[in-house]
């Protein structure tokens, strides 16, 4: 029998090898993907988030835990899709055009996956058209925009404006984040939400989905 507590520990301690090994064994023994995710991986990522909030964990630990979870998810995701299980919501995330920095964006993406979201990672230096395409063709309910530089913050505004022009702004909730971004700036450019760290971004995304972009 697979010791599933080890999956929780592997994610919490950022041990990708162990996470993959336990997942493989568990799946071979017929344990359902949903059981692994909801009872072990999500609680582990919640604990990672809690430790980050109280400053026991920092960026490196977050990255390692996210990587461990990702390793496990690559095994699980095809099974989820096959069994038709719906994710908590579908999020398109990217660093806005003009900005190459993606460490923060990657962290948020991983935390969202840990929180049960399906994440479409559009990468860095993403032009508005790509976000529009994701909304029109991929059933995205939340768009998450990241910028690390003061000089690329205007690109966030341009992206939101482009969503309006394309007539898709009302179909999604837009959340923004990144070192120089503030709540005030988020409001100015007409975003629906702002988060100042990767952990809070998960709660924000849940709230935005609950508020409900029209289904």
């Amino acid at each position: 029998m697979a010791d599933l507590q080890k999956l929780y520990d592997a994610v919490l301690n950022g041990d990708q090898k162990a996470a993959i090994a336990v997942t493989e064994q568990a799946l071979a023994e017929g344990i359902t993907p949903l059981d692994l995710i909801t009872n072990y991986m999500v609680p582990a990522m919640d604990e990672v988030g809690r430790r980050f909030e109280c400053e026991d964990y920092f960026v490196p630990e977050l990255l390692l835990s996210a990587r461990a979870m990702k390793g496990s998810l690559t095994l699980i995701r095809p099974l989820l899709t096959a069994s038709g299980i719906e994710p908590a919501g579908r999020v398109a995330i990217g660093t806005v055009k003009g900005d190459l920095h993606d460490i923060g964006k990657n962290l948020v993406a991983s935390m969202l996956e840990g929180g049960g979201f399906e994440v479409i990672d559009l990468g860095a230096d993403v032009p508005p058209e790509k976000f529009i395409d994701a909304i029109q063709n991929k059933g995205v309910r939340v768009v998450a925009l990241s910028a690390l530089l003061t000089v690329t913050m205007p690109s966030m505004r341009k992206t939101i404006d482009a969503l309006k022009e394309a007539g898709v702004r009302d179909q999604v909730k837009v959340m923004v984040g990144g070192a120089p971004v503030t709540q005030q700036f988020a409001e100015e450019i007409g975003a629906d939400g702002y988060s100042d760290n990767a952990n809070a971004a998960v709660a924000l995304a849940r709230k935005l989905v609950a508020e409900g972009a029209p289904a």
Binding site: V59, P60, L100, H101, D102
Partner: peptide, 18 residues
């Protein structure tokens, strides 16, 4: 060289925070 453009930079950055 543009460091941020290299995917290896993220791992090195995380490791170098120790």
């Amino acid at each position: 060289v543009e460091l941020a453009a290299d995917p290896a930079f993220q791992d090195l950055f995380a490791e170098s925070m120790l």
